[in-house]
Computed example of a mutant assay.
Amino acid sequence: MEWQGLDGGLGVSSLGVGTVGLAGTVETLLYAFYMAGPVTLHPDAGTFSMHWLSEPPFDTAAVAARIERIYEVMCDFFGEPEPGHRVFVRKNPYPGNGGTALPKSFTFGWSEIEPPTVEELASLLAHETAHNWPRLDGEHGDIAWYTEGTAEYYSIVLPYRAGLIDEAVYLGLINERARGYYTNPLQMLSNAAAYELFWQAQRAQRVPYGRSLFYLADLDAKIRAVGDRSLDDLVLAVLERQRAGAKVGVDAWLALVVAELGEAARADFAAMESGEWVVSAYGAFGPGTPARKSATT
């Protein structure tokens, strides 16, 4: 891939800045973001950078610093062997500040109609950054609960463990997700039924987020209640297998949770998948968890 700059312009992609040598598949090129023109780079060196064309209305340095620190924390937790992350910022002509993640990069939009705050962006960007790691192999409709649920969970829990947010902010983020989950009129749809409506109803798109967040928090609390392990052990085990070249789908996930909690864990998963309300076990998200303590060591 080669970029010839005009009038001081610059070409940037998920793969790098300017001319980049690539050994990969066509999918590598397809699943990448591209930006060209008078692109601003911040910072202009290192494994993390943020890029934009139109000057945003928020403090870009503050947002970049916040998300870079979150990225470093997540790289450490997930054992990222090849750090490198790019954030692409674009101006939207319509309300909305959503984002989309691709390998080692993501993009989000901002609108003059509803300009985002640094705090709002920190929450969004933490979620999108977490998408670099946890995933299951399979069809989107079958594994979206895991992709979005783990991104929600670790975008809240890891910054808290690292001391990047205090308990008041932590509680606020959890309550915000709880409101979104328990007030969504489509939350009692099964995962399959919600997926059928995915591109027709915005509330259907939100089903995997809240449902799976509280399922994972419940699972974590139940695992911690019977020993010295946690949800982290399962999520990292999935990632380790995938890095070794294995495909890890829903069946493999169920085998992991059943090994921890017995057949009751299979019933909990089936209830979540069918659309039953998830009420997390006592102690979910609570202070003093082994994970929180380990962050200070």
Rank of each mutant, 00 (worst) to 15 (best):
170 Y>T: 07
14 S>P: 12
204 A>P: 12
265 A>M: 02
67 I>C: 07
161 R>F: 01
281 A>I: 04
244 A>I: 00
84 G>I: 09
249 G>Y: 01
113 I>S: 13
156 I>A: 08
252 A>N: 07
128 E>P: 00
156 I>H: 10
260 E>R: 08
210 G>S: 11
3 W>H: 11
124 L>C: 05
13 S>D: 08
210 G>Q: 09
230 S>M: 05
63 V>H: 02
277 W>F: 10
275 G>S: 10
263 E>S: 06
131 H>R: 07
148 E>L: 00
51 H>Y: 13
90 R>Y: 06
270 A>N: 08
278 V>G: 01
265 A>K: 03
210 G>A: 10
196 E>D: 15
228 D>T: 12
50 M>T: 15
168 A>P: 08
243 R>A: 08
18 G>V: 07
166 D>A: 12
255 A>V: 12
172 G>V: 06
120 E>Q: 14
50 M>I: 14
213 L>D: 03
152 E>C: 14
101 A>H: 11
229 R>M: 11
42 H>W: 10
245 G>Y: 01
113 I>V: 15
229 R>K: 14
115 P>F: 10
235 V>C: 03
30 L>H: 10
192 A>R: 13
142 D>V: 07
282 Y>E: 15
194 A>L: 01
44 D>G: 08
13 S>K: 04
245 G>Q: 12
48 F>L: 09
92 N>Q: 14
101 A>E: 05
151 A>E: 04
289 T>Y: 01
8 G>A: 07
